[in-house]
Nucleic acid binder design. Structure first.
Lengths: 132, 132
DNA sequence: TCTTGACCTTCCAGTAGCTGGAAGAACTAT
DNA sequence: ATAGTTCTTCCAGCTACTGGAAGGTCAAGA
């Protein structure tokens, strides 16, 4: 399929897909006319990239995660170890998002924000996170 | 407190804090010696920024979210509406992270990756997301 | 068959969001 | 007083796109 279709299916703009190819994240076949030609397997990778990028993983992190899709490297214990670390990181991100959501809910519904000294709960909400 | 202390407490590098000031996200008082002077309230905002940026919200989105911390604007229905939208977005991000985690777990433990045609579950995992 | 419009190509420039380093002033500790 | 750390501004560089120009390709209709 052409880049436009791959773009629709993956949620990534064509420009971004070409950029990812340029930096070696994912290379596409070429049709006889010179157009890039994507398989469903490429689309899976692109969707994977779209999701992980939009969730705060860097391109380099995505490159590591993406190597899980390649059979050969996936046999290596290294890559599996990296994936385990990333899984833990994802769990942390989920917890942070839940905390951020609670902060927003609280700010919208309950109290006056941290300008007021009478709202100690904000300390717990805005102050909790990964960095002590 | 000085920028170094605010940096430690918020998890943001001093450089980034200065940059946020430069683009008008958060302005600090100045001590007599010209040093920036941060309050706990500023630190709350910085932590809030640290979290929301690392979770994939743009600086402009953070600017909107941050206005929840200001009493005056928080009274406006607009800002509350924006916050409600963001809360929904956070829930979606949480679901996507959970899905991404399942994809990784699956790739690590169960099957051979999408090069092999005998693993239909990858379709469901890598293919599910926000874009149809 | 010709043409129109949508899509593709490459290339180059610009933007967002930091990040590093230089040069110098100020605070802290001995 | 001196050394070392932290602060200041300024400017350059990097990551990850994003927009636009100039031109080739393709599918549909007159």
């Amino acid at each position: 399929m052409n880049i436009g279709t791959a773009s629709e299916k993956s949620g990534l703009p064509p420009k971004t897909i070409r950029y990812y190819e340029e930096i070696g994240l994912l290379k596409a076949d070429r049709a006889e006319n010179g157009y890039r030609d994507y398989s469903m397997s490429d689309v899976h990778r692109l969707r994977f990239l779209q999701r992980s990028r939009s969730l705060g993983f860097s391109v380099e992190e995505c490159r590591q995660l993406l190597s899980l899709y390649g059979d050969k490297e996936r046999e290596s214990a290294d890559v599996k170890a990296i994936a385990e670390v990333k899984i833990a990181e994802i769990d942390r991100k989920i917890a942070e998002l839940a905390s951020l959501r609670d902060t927003l809910r609280h700010l919208v519904h309950n109290c006056h924000g941290d300008e007021r000294p009478d709202c100690p709960i904000i300390d717990g909400l805005a102050g909790s996170g990964t960095v002590q």
